[in-house]
Design a protein around this nucleic acid. Structure first.
Length: 517
DNA sequence: GTAGCCTTGAAT
DNA sequence: ATTCAAGGCTAC
């Protein structure tokens, strides 16, 4: 569906960004200085054979590249209504069926044995449907060019990190145990409620606070560079106070832009990978979970007073109000966090408009992974819902969304993703260089690269199988993106049928993104 | 059907 | 002019 590839910004940068960009524009792993053969010694993620180059979105071997045709025969039954290329292939409409349990092992020697599982694996590792040309035109370049370029730069960086550390993949011991924190309880004074609207959530108090659609720009400081820690921003009837207890806004490195020299200068100590300081800096930008819980609970308590007039809202409406409040906290996090507050408000808005739903979803998912219990949904207020209850009350779309969300939570849980990694992932989502018409594109790209580097280094530091882990995290990121798109579509439908509260930030963001693209 | 090699052609 | 990831060809 994509029309135009994002423009390449490799020109020299303005003074304000010089420090931050120094690392990527002149450093040893500049995106402009990769060698052509970077990564070619890698193994095909589908079957483990030697890769022959980038094919349909990632480095694979020639054999798995060629198998796109069979892949399309497999996918065809699901795309009967598409036209063009698929119509031409329709006479070969051969349906692949797995003779086993759709979980055949795919490797170099066995890859021919099950076409179904092979192509499922192609999909799973990230081969891109869109890279196959409907018109079968040969040669030329496609929109994946910049992506391949970034990937190469990252691989080069990774290789250099490994060389610098002198460590081998199989000999790197886990240096730090998982930082899972499952000892925290958030039940507080609130009781778990199986289905929200069956029980009053909060005891009513205070006056009803109504609000009109607060524009995102009113949440952002007029001059982002001048944002201070305790600045109050008012909009409509809300007063939002920045109550961050972290020191990210006032830390010495972040005020005028973190220079890579400070945070990311020496990839490794001679002994091996070290804890990247940048990761700790990103973590410091996170607000405390308990404080967030109290703040959002308090706001919802105020809201509740207004409900008595119209009767209790539906569970879905309540969830939207909660999501709306969480969105406020996400915007607050963004506008005070490192790197982002250096951006112009216009770029800040573009980035937030593009990724709000991913951040929101990540917030929910990370809460389940870090603090949740199996089979239950832990809300931002600290309350819990039975997932089976949600499933029994939800329609097929929401049920499948929840199901996929649960699967992602499970994946991240098995990976034992910790707060540090979630903090990095949040930044990776926020600093998306593929967002259109960014004024400070080079800066945003450089932040993205720094964060990727830091996350990679962190996984090196904490995991014995770091390469797989890093790749897994990035895979989860793409699943998160597709889930958030589905969630947006779902929400939009519910909005059109007036089943969710309007005039809030959530709906405003929903509209803004649709108008934008 | 598979997979190694070939041709193509927009972007650089 | 070069690059390199598309699609094509064909021996197996």
């Amino acid at each position: 569906m994509e029309k135009v590839p994002p423009p390449q910004h490799e020109d020299e940068t303005s003074d304000a960004l010089t420090t931050a960009l120094h690392f990527t524009s002149t450093g040893p792993f500049s995106t402009m200085e990769y060698r052509h053969d970077v990564g070619l010694e890698e193994l095909c993620p589908v079957c483990g054979d030697k890769v022959s180059g980038y094919h349909y979105g990632l480095l694979t071997c020639e054999s798995c590249k060629i198998n796109r045709d069979a892949f399309f025969k497999w996918i065809l039954p699901f795309l009967q209504h598409s036209q063009g290329f698929f119509k031409r292939t329709v006479q070969n409409n051969k349906k692949y069926v797995c003779a086993e349990n759709q979980e055949c092992r795919i490797d170099k020697t066995q890859r021919k044995r099950c076409a179904f599982c092979r192509f499922q694996k192609c999909l799973h590792v990230g081969m891109r449907l869109e890279a196959v040309r409907a018109d079968r035109m040969r040669g030329g370049r496609n929109k994946f060019g910049p992506m391949y370029k970034r990937d190469r730069a990252l691989k080069q960086q990774r290789k250099a990190l490994i060389q610098a550390s002198g460590c081998r993949i199989e000999s790197s011991p886990p240096l730090v145990s998982s930082t899972h924190q499952r000892d925290l309880t958030f039940t507080g004074g609130l009781h778990p409620v199986p289905v929200l609207h069956s029980t009053p959530l909060f005891t009513a108090q205070n006056d009803h606070i109504s609000y009109q659609s607060p524009a995102l720009c009113s949440l952002l400081p007029f001059n982002s560079a001048g944002a201070t820690q305790n600045q109050s921003t008012s909009f409509s009837n809300w007063i939002i106070k920045s109550e961050h207890t972290n020191n990210c806004a006032s830390s010495p490195g972040s005020a005028a832009g973190i220079g890579s020299d400070e945070l990311y200068s020496r990839p490794f100590s001679p002994q091996g990978p070290r804890m990247p300081q940048l990761v700790m800096e990103l973590l410091r930008c996170d607000s405390d979970e308990l404080k967030l819980q109290n703040k959002i609970t308090a706001r919802l308590l105020q809201e509740q007073a207004g409900w008595e007039k119209q009767g209790n809202p539906s569970t879905l409406s309540l969830m939207c109000l909660m999501a709306d409040q969480t969105l406020f906290s996400i915007v607050e996090w963004a506008r005070t966090c490192i790197f982002f507050k250096q951006l112009k408000v216009s770029d800040q808005m573009k980035l937030l408009h593009s990724c709000w739903s991913e951040l929101l979803l990540l917030d929910i998912i990370s809460r389940q992974v870090l603090y949740g219990k199996e089979g239950r949904l832990l809300l931002v207020t600290g309350q819990e819902m039975e997932l089976s209850d949600i499933a029994s009350h939800a329609g097929p779309t929401l049920t499948s969304l929840v199901q996929r969300g649960q699967e992602l939570v499970e994946k991240l849980h098995i990976l034992k993703v910790d707060r540090q990694e979630f903090a990095c992932i949040k930044f990776l989502i926020l600093f998306n260089p593929d967002v259109k018409q960014l004024e400070d594109h080079p800066f945003i790209e450089s932040v993205q690269e720094q964060i990727e580097g830091a996350l990679l280094e962190y996984t090196l530091y904490t995991s014995s199988q770091f390469l797989g882990r890093f790749a897994h995290l990035l895979l989860c990121l793409s699943e998160l993106r597709s889930l958030s798109n589905l969630a947006e579509d779902y929400l939009y439908c519910k909005h059109l049928s007036s089943e969710v509260p309007c005039n809030n930030l959530l709906i405003e963001m929903l509209h803004a993104k649709r108008n934008w693209s």
